[in-house]
Design a protein around this nucleic acid. Sequence first.
DNA 1: TATGGATTGGAATTATTATTTCATATTGAC
DNA 2: GTCAATATGAAATAATAATTCCAATCCATA
Lengths: 288, 288
Amino acid sequence: MGLGGATMDERVPRDFETLRATILERRQSLPKRIAQIAAYALDNPDDIAFGTAASIAASAGVQPSTLIRFAQQLGFDGFTSLQQVFRERLRERNSSYDERLAALRAKAEEGAGHRAIFDGFVAAASTSLSDISRTLNEPHFEEAIALLAKAETIYVLAKRRSYPVASYIAYALGKLKIRNQLIESAAGLNAEMVGFATPNDAVIAISFSPYAPATIEETRAISEQGVPIVAITDSSFSPLAQFAKVWFEVAEADFAGFRSLSATMALAMALTVAVGEKRRDTGRKRKA
Amino acid sequence: MGLGGATMDERVPRDFETLRATILERRQSLPKRIAQIAAYALDNPDDIAFGTAASIAASAGVQPSTLIRFAQQLGFDGFTSLQQVFRERLRERNSSYDERLAALRAKAEEGAGHRAIFDGFVAAASTSLSDISRTLNEPHFEEAIALLAKAETIYVLAKRRSYPVASYIAYALGKLKIRNQLIESAAGLNAEMVGFATPNDAVIAISFSPYAPATIEETRAISEQGVPIVAITDSSFSPLAQFAKVWFEVAEADFAGFRSLSATMALAMALTVAVGEKRRDTGRKRKA
DNA sequence: TATGGATTGGAATTATTATTTCATATTGAC
DNA sequence: GTCAATATGAAATAATAATTCCAATCCATA
């Protein structure tokens, strides 16, 4: 009968690599038109992922029905399920880290030892880093540097989970001899501190969902004084974004309820050092 | 008329970045459900690329018709053409990812400006992470967890560049409802704070070369009171090591004179969460 | 609180797309 | 060269999905 290789015991390839291997293996024994579309599929996997049966068939120079027969020969029950494999491939390209992380999370939850927890945090950090290095908006980055480099005083504003980043920024700015003011919580003098800022200064504000109300409030207040703000936050919908002159969206993976700070840290340090460098350059030029 | 912004002169965004910018720009003025799907779209672009109108609408918690209205507000004539933009993005991303990465590397190596600084920090963080996940001493890790889990109060001790880590530990411990005391500098009350610690408590001390004298001094003092110490430091010759019951050697790469904290952070968070978990387990057993 | 306009939910409709079917062509064995 | 088995093309059909429409609801404004 015409179903070709779709016998019972045969495993249907569910990931792209297996599928690819299967196709290459059988290539010799495939009928002409089927082979034609097999070649096309391996050469243009993206087209298979997104096209319709008709459009793909046309591009490959065969009939839609042939495309379906091809899928069936491989053990799928139709074009649609074959297409899934090609789509999955595109997704995974971007999310292999995410999957690993998900696996680790599951492992940690079922109580698989403490090492799993550690691995989870390492994976969350790695994911966040590779993500930010892919998505960093360079024009924004340059703009932020320029903005901060000409500030008289840089105010650093963050609470709670973002606070460690702020404290490191403040430390680094101090080391680089850049005047700065860390606005922490506690003391209750924040309103006064914020009041001193002028449009000649600048702010780095950091906040992630759920956004600490104090951070938002202070950012709003300071932006109303005309002080330019660079925000580091986690979503385009963050309340910080609307107050900021420049803002960065940093997608930190979290693990066990705690956010990795690696990406934010890397960005914060890069900003800080770049500002230091830009100031040195400018200083040199002025003297010359 | 119901077409919303779909007036003649308006440009339909054809690439993802423009689309994204458009959405962000209008987000204030969008009706609730439309805004809901707008947020979903930016957060889950892959789902938009692959899903059907019905499946996406369900995931985002709206009706399919809302999804279409969303597309129309943006100037598309329907969901299908909106989806094209999301698909295009995936194609491009995948095809050019390797090239882009190679370009970035080249650029970073020839010292091209500020992006290179950023890449440097990311690289330092990644290196540190892969390093620590290779070299973590598991028996020490377990021992440290056991030691901290039975402490009444956990004191967290770090200054200067290590302080951000300490503050995150304190934050996390607080979240996990584990009694802790962060020993910062400034106030000058450290000696008194340290004086309260007993052998039933425990200390996490963090310090890297050049070791802050205050950290060393306080660690010494507290160890003389018989309080067990877990140290995170950078070398076997660290002065912290001699006072500690358990210590970890973390080799953080540095860049431009600033140490990456990623590996230390990951270790610190893993310790914290593992301690929290161990306590929950122990508590449960006691009750049973 | 009443009123008009905008927004939303849900079903009905239309369109698109996958799949099936069947007639025809091709291939290989005898 | 004939026959049977397999492969292919093209159109019909079935399934699925997008879109539209209308009633219900929400919201701002008078």
